[in-house]
Nucleic acid binder design. Structure first.
Lengths: 251, 251
DNA sequence: CGCTGCATCTCGTTA
DNA sequence: TAACGAGGTGCAGCG
């Protein structure tokens, strides 16, 4: 085992090809210390909870986070083949009868259990460090909204935004406003090209508002997105809804 | 550096607190060999593509997969703070002017670039192994469909399934069939509790089929799920759709 | 805790 | 390649 404390408290401990007993101890220590623990080795994986799954033996990379998240990665795919969300309790123990090392991550609400059983452990690492910074992301739906609120004419000349997240019986509307003829306008924003689901969503808001404001008032529904699919376009026409092409700011 | 070949070709190589030049070489070797490479250290992360983001310096865990995927994990959350999907080209080089080690993962369609810049590398590992097995998952929507096709009376007495994935102008219907009175039935399946979106989806299919089969035929729309939210329930009533409570098989 | 909707959603399938 | 929908979606915000 190697240990690397430095002035910042950053620390990495690594075991290579440990015996299962030593691996268990290193993993338990890392979890107790609040470290991010990784284990690479040959394992089976069982999950039971919202669904249930089994994965037969193979070499995989397991990550245990101090917030209770667990990730099992194979050498393919962006997504873990199995996982457990934050909030779990990690447990590690030896199954001496079968000579295996078992990591269990369990949570409730919903009841879920992930069990990773190693026959061979090739590496255990425990990482401690500091990360004070949050991600700064540009190009979200919220950025698109800001763009329109700053320059409402981008939607159409004479548009006046009155509220964001305005509540309706069908949910909160992205932008609520009036056009130059004082007609009520409901705007649904999407940061990328949209399909039929976004049109239906807008439709639900328009329906709810027409009901809310009594039947006499016409409510215009405008979908704002970079583009729409063919089916979404036809659906817009069917429902008497409109489309304005706008993208979130690039930076 | 330690190297651990075994009979199966399983291999783990680890560098601890390497100089940036040595880290670069180990990472490049691992990528070239088709290994799963991990790097832990203090880094900044920049992304540009479908959106753009910046993450200031912090200690993070980076995983580079042989299929081109890249993942940057902090010590919190199930999701990576930054990532790149499979299909990327990984590149690693030293920025000698600034004495940093840079990992770039780039792809096209869409054009996207992830750049991780390390000032300090605490560990580099390269993992090779074998994983022949696929995940066996039970409790999916498809399992729920099988359950109904095997025992159609679960939906309602006298129901006769005629097709799955039947195409309509609005998309493919999960189950298409007839009830005991020979009326057309459209069934939309969801493996878990559903909200308004699932109701709208069913509505689109029913509308499309009524149009397709001409206006004279009544089309029943049935949503099958473990349960629905209040809003979804009201929306079902509004649209004259029905609900049947069924869960996918537990195992 | 549940509901709602966003996401650089990812991923598989199909036209 | 694009579109459509499932997902053990995760996640934040709000009630």
């Amino acid at each position: 085992m190697s240990e690397f404390p430095d002035g910042d408290g950053t620390r990495v401990e690594t075991l290579e090809r440990p015996a299962l007993a030593a691996a268990r101890e290193a993993i338990a220590d890392g979890i107790a210390r609040g470290a991010l623990v990784t284990v690479f080795g040959r394992c089976t994986v069982d999950y039971e909870g919202r669904a249930s799954s089994r994965l037969e033996a193979g070499d995989r990379h397991v990550m245990l986070k101090p917030d209770g998240a667990a990730l099992v990665h194979t050498d393919e795919g962006q997504q873990p083949v199995n996982w457990q969300p934050p909030g779990c309790e990690h447990d590690v123990y030896r199954d001496e009868a079968d000579d295996r090392l078992v990591i269990e991550s369990v949570r409730s609400t919903p009841d879920e259990r992930l069990r990773v059983s190693f026959g061979t452990v090739l590496q255990v690492s425990a990482f401690s460090g500091t990360d004070e910074n949050d991600l700064a992301l540009v190009g979200t739906e919220e950025d698109l909204r800001e763009r329109i609120l700053t320059e409402p004419d981008l939607l159409e000349p004479g548009f006046t935004p009155l509220a964001t997240e305005r509540e309706t019986p069908a949910g909160a509307v992205d932008i609520y406003g009036k056009d130059s003829a004082e007609r009520t306008v409901v705007v649904e924003l999407k940061r990328r090209r949209v399909g039929p689901d976004a049109v239906s969503q807008l439709r639900r808001y328009v329906d709810a508002l027409e009901r809310d404001l009594h039947a006499d008032a016409t409510v215009r529904g405008i979908l704002v997105a970079p583009s729409v699919t063919d089916r979404a376009d036809r659906l817009l026409v069917e429902h008497g809804l409109e489309f304005v092409s706008l993208e979130p700011p690039a930076e």
